[in-house]
């Protein structure tokens, strides 16, 4: 395992680009968490006035016009059920924190939509979900490395290696080789 944060780029880390509305789609669907709401709203307003649907996932009292709420409880199941009404030529635009983007991506591909139909906006923050390779617990909303695993309590080096299935980056105990080494905490990019 590396002693420091990897100095080379890791290719499993997704690339994000600015999203533009897909002009050919028959229907546009916007999905966002609270962090991505402003981004999502801007994109929603910019897209053609074809058939539109917008969902906010999370617990919020005030929503912009046109957004429907899905409570955060078992939102993935609820969203999955809602999707049955949409045709094969639908474009999806997802905004929010990185783990949320890929969780939605998972729900959509499971429903049969293709990756080219799913447009992920650049993440709305630097928080990551981190998969602990020792206890397999996923710690949400990590913004520094090293970070404490919420499952086993180990101090984890957060690497740039990303799993779309787990929607998380990998975390490995940072001082397993020499417990005396406790590197300074750094903000994640």
């Amino acid at each position: 395992m590396n002693d420091a944060v990897a100095s080379y780029t890791v290719k499993s880390r997704p690339d994000y680009h600015e999203v533009a509305p897909d002009q050919t789609a028959q229907c546009h669907v916007f999905i966002t968490d609270s962090a991505g709401l402003a981004q999502s709203e801007a994109l929603c307003q910019a897209s053609p006035v074809a058939k539109k649907q917008a969902w906010h996932i999370g617990d919020s009292d005030t929503l912009p016009a046109g957004y429907e709420a899905i409570q955060s409880g078992d939102w993935q199941a609820v969203l999955g059920e809602q999707l049955s009404g949409f045709g094969i030529a639908t474009a999806f635009y997802v905004s929010g924190l990185e783990a949320f983007l890929w969780q939605v991506h998972g729900v959509l591909t499971k429903a049969g939509f293709a990756p080219s139909q799913i447009h992920l906006e650049p993440p709305a923050g630097n928080q990551r979900d981190v998969f602990c390779t020792h206890c397999y617990h996923i710690t949400p909303d990590v913004s520094t490395t090293p970070a404490r695993c919420a499952g086993c309590g180990r101090l984890l080096l957060v690497r740039d290696h990303f799993s779309r299935l787990h929607c998380a980056y990998v975390g490995v105990q940072i001082n397993a080789e020499d417990p005396a080494e406790v590197p300074p905490t750094e903000e994640l990019s």
Partner: peptide
């Protein structure tokens, strides 16, 4: 497919 937004990967 291009005209109606049908996914090319499929």
């Amino acid at each position: 497919a291009a005209q109606i937004g049908w996914p090319q990967e499929h």
